[in-house]
Design a protein around this nucleic acid. Structure first.
Lengths: 192, 192
DNA sequence: CAATACAGAATGAACATTCATTCTATCATC
DNA sequence: GATGATAGAATGAATGTTCATTCTGTATTG
């Protein structure tokens, strides 16, 4: 087994256990066990548990951003761009419940205390796609002229809530629903 | 000091510490210390830490439900009822940041894992005001005909997000903002 | 034969919880 | 009213457990 393989084993074992059990109930010994390595070995690859946890988060963030921006075209009308990003993000979370649960846990823990959920995606090259989108919308008077945090709350908090309900099995989100929800969120931020 | 006084000291010490520090970093010894009692004393009033934590949550739930329903009139038009409840709830959270943070922590922890946030208020007499409201709205065709969980997500997830941003000091929510946000959420669920 | 990676036992810190003991208040007895 | 007995409340030191992290000896690799 290659150096990088073992590292990946550890990362994905930790991702899985933490997603399912939470940061508590994810002792290093259990992670080591699931990864098929000794407890001490983890410390060869990661300085400590915090570093491991943050590393997983960073990887997920990259993946989410990449997936969602794939196929995104900046030249479309605002509304279409919004619907595209919104549905792509929700679909990603539905397809990758472990990723979603990890991200949620992280945000609601001291680890991600400083991070805000609205910074979730689009951090590529220091710019935030979503923030740009809203700013553009406000300047075109297509979007309500209220503080950006409020726009994020109106548009994306429901998305996370739906993803949560879905991963918890409280609701089976169908494709038509994704679209209707995206449109409803657009209506919330839209300037009429 | 009376029996019930000491019990209340413990409850409010725990509420304060847990709200500010999280369930981790809230050792019983610290709670006892802040309450001005011995560590063992807590166990006279509460069987264990879990029971204490759940007890606090139940008390908060009662308080929130009572406050929000105060002044609520079932005979108004749907839209007005919605706006009334929505703004009352957000105002309560803004005015009681410790309560809000505790409730949030609880929901995002194994303690509240089974609970859903849509069950937050209105559990008085086994009926849920909000659920009734939406059902009524759907039957009048004033509200979109989509699953109730989706309506909750669209309407109340932004509320929680704003309350969070506010208690974290990321945004100073003014009265005009509360109203605009409430209206935006109504637009999201409204059937047009 | 270095030197590095590895496993898993050992360590120690942080806690929840317990329990032997002390305190306090009430009430009966003289 | 003083004295003593009793019950229940309160205490905090002691205990046991759960981990993150470190250590030590062994295997692997170059």
């Amino acid at each position: 087994m290659k150096h990088t393989d073992k590292r990946n084993e550890i990362l994905s074992a930790a991702l899985e256990i933490i997603s399912e059990q939470g940061f508590h109930k994810a002792p290093m010994s259990m992670i080591a066990n699931k990864a098929g390595v000794g407890a001490g070995t983890i410390y060869i690859y990661f300085e400590n548990k915090d570093v491991l946890i943050n590393e997983i988060y960073r990887e997920l963030e990259k993946k989410v951003a990449a997936t969602v921006q794939e196929g995104y075209s900046a030249s479309q009308p605002i509304r279409e761009k919004f619907i595209y990003l919104w549905t792509a993000l929700l679909r990603y979370f539905i397809k990758n419940p472990l990723h979603f649960r990890y991200i949620e846990q992280y945000h609601n823990s001291p680890y991600g205390a400083s991070l805000r959920r609205d910074k979730l995606m689009g951090k590529t090259e220091g710019s935030n796609i979503l923030e740009e989108l809203f700013k553009e919308g406000v300047s075109q008077q297509a979007v309500k002229d209220i503080p950006i945090v409020m726009l994020f709350a109106l548009a994306f908090a429901p998305l996370l809530s739906l993803a949560r309900d879905h991963t918890l099995g409280l609701i089976k989100i169908e494709d038509a629903h994704v679209m209707r929800a995206a449109e409803a969120c657009w209506e919330a931020v839209e300037n009429k």
